[in-house]
């Protein structure tokens, strides 16, 4: 069981990472907030099942990605829209000069739009492996599918992304 103080500590430690992944999944901040909140509510509800020896970060990912996929499957409630610049955005390391930042912003928007065009299961795979840097095994466990399915989904997702981004970005 997670004590209150432990739960606070877990939120302090993992909420920013969860929010970042949620933004990549949903494509906008409002839906990312909804998704993270829903995931943490599930965690609070299931707190009695939590073993302190578990990897809480991994557990959080599993719950959040499953909430996302279930939501997309059942209701199509979460909007996925092309991405626009916004104050307060945190660029990846090495953003560089203003000219480089502008160039990167353009690429970021293009990537966001291309991701939004992917089916939810392919998008979730790309977010986990290519953006969050997880391995195939972690993605398979998180998404509840065989490792071979992760490879297949990545293959299809990347092919679609290259087709969408190639003419613009030389990808």
């Amino acid at each position: 069981m997670i004590a209150r103080e432990k739960l606070d500590e877990l939120i302090e430690t993992h909420s920013a990472k969860a929010y970042q992944a949620a933004c990549r999944l949903t494509g906008n901040q409002a839906d990312a907030c909804d998704l993270v909140q829903e995931a943490f509510l599930r965690i609070i509800e299931k707190k009695d099942l939590f073993d302190p020896g578990f990897d809480f970060g991994g557990w959080m990912y599993r719950i959040m990605f499953r909430v996302y996929l279930n939501s997309r499957r059942s209701r199509e409630r979460l909007r996925e829209v092309p991405l626009e610049p916004e104050a307060g955005s945190v660029p990846a390391a090495g953003a560089g000069s203003p000219e480089r930042a502008a160039e990167n912003s353009e690429l970021g928007r293009s990537i966001g739009a291309a991701l939004a065009g992917l089916p939810a299961e392919l998008r979730a795979c790309v977010v986990l492996v290519d953006m969050e840097g997880m391995d195939y095994e972690f993605a398979a466990e998180t998404l509840g599918c065989p490792v071979g399915s992760v490879a297949g989904r990545l293959f299809r997702a990347r092919r679609a992304l290259r087709a969408a981004l190639g003419p613009m970005e030389g990808i």
Partner: peptide
């Protein structure tokens, strides 16, 4: 912000 749209900026 008034906008709720994410921004994915930058690459390394």
């Amino acid at each position: 912000s008034g906008s709720s749209v994410c921004f994915f900026g930058g690459r390394d």
